[in-house]
Simulated assay, not measured.
Amino acid sequence: MAATKRAPAGAAVLRGDITAAIRNAVMHELAEVGYGRLSIEAVARRAGVGKTAVYRRWSNKLEMVLEIVSGVAERSVPMPDTGSFESDLQLLTFIVSKALQHRIASQIIPDLMAEAARNPKIAETLNKALSKHQRAVGETIVGQAVARGELPAGTDPEMAVDLMLGPLYWRLAVLRTPIDDDYLEKLSASVTAALRAGSPAQ
């Protein structure tokens, strides 16, 4: 019978509950003080751990924030399939608008966008995470609408997603203007009409 493999003596065993506490602390610190003023010390204090627990997982603040934020940004959003593109779009915009209006996300997103203008690594990470989400929406919701014959066969998924979700980022993350269900309904109807009209002639 083979002997059970043991971790080398002195090897760090990273407890999942501590990692979760640190991740949660990072998100709250980002929301409260922003990336510029965020510190490893404050994160450790909020998480109820020593600084060494943080440094066992990430070597510096930037690495820590990029991994945690990209993990949140890349979480899959439920993709509606109601049988109607306009209904799918209305449900999707409702889900995304609620996420953007979350008390933590609404503070973190504008701050990280500003940091991205100064830090190429943050810009690259955000771009990668958001592009992945955009492709998923385009391939699924726009793709199934084209397959059902609701949108023209030549519909550009990337442009369609810009029209679908761009107004939400503009209103909620840039202007920071509240929106309601009536706005989402009108947005869905307007975007649907625009996409059904087809691409402009080349």
Rank of each mutant, 00 (worst) to 15 (best):
D81S: 09
L38I: 12
R103F: 14
P110L: 08
I40Y: 12
L172P: 01
M79A: 06
P157I: 08
N60K: 15
L14C: 10
R196D: 04
A193S: 10
E139W: 04
K186H: 09
M159I: 14
V69M: 09
L126M: 14
R135I: 05
D182H: 14
I104F: 07
G50C: 09
E41H: 13
Y35T: 05
A105G: 08
T82L: 01
A99I: 06
E41T: 13
W170K: 12
S84R: 01
I179W: 08
Q134K: 01
D81Q: 06
V65I: 14
Y35D: 02
L130G: 06
A105W: 12
L165V: 06
F85V: 03
G50M: 08
T155E: 00
Q90R: 05
Q101I: 04
P110A: 10
A123E: 14
Y169M: 13
R103L: 12
R23C: 03
T19W: 02
E158Q: 15
L14Q: 11
N24R: 13
A129Q: 05
N60S: 15
G48H: 15
A193Y: 08
A123S: 11
M164I: 03
L175A: 09
G154C: 10
L126G: 05
L66W: 00
L30R: 02
I18T: 14
E139Q: 08
L91C: 03
S70C: 09
A9K: 11
D88M: 05
D17S: 11
A116I: 10
A53G: 12
I68T: 04
A42H: 14
M113D: 06
H102Q: 11
K61L: 10
G198T: 01
V161D: 02
P157T: 08
K61S: 07
R118E: 14
D181P: 00
E74M: 14
G143S: 02
L92K: 02
L126K: 02
V26G: 00
A129N: 05
Q134F: 01
S70A: 13
A116E: 08
A105H: 11
T125G: 09
A99H: 06
E139T: 05
H102Y: 05
R6V: 00
A193F: 07
E63Y: 09
W170T: 11
R118F: 12
V43S: 03
G48E: 09
L187K: 03
N119W: 10
T177R: 08
V142Q: 01
M27P: 01
G48Q: 13
Y55C: 13
A173C: 15
A129P: 02
L89T: 03
E150K: 00
L14I: 14
K61E: 10
G34I: 04
R6E: 06
E115N: 08
E67D: 15
T140V: 08
G166V: 06
G166Q: 06
K61D: 09
L195C: 12
Y169E: 06
A117S: 12
Y55G: 11
T19Y: 02
W58Y: 15
W58M: 13
A31V: 00
E74K: 15
P157M: 10
L130P: 01
R6Y: 01
E185C: 06
P200G: 10
S76F: 04
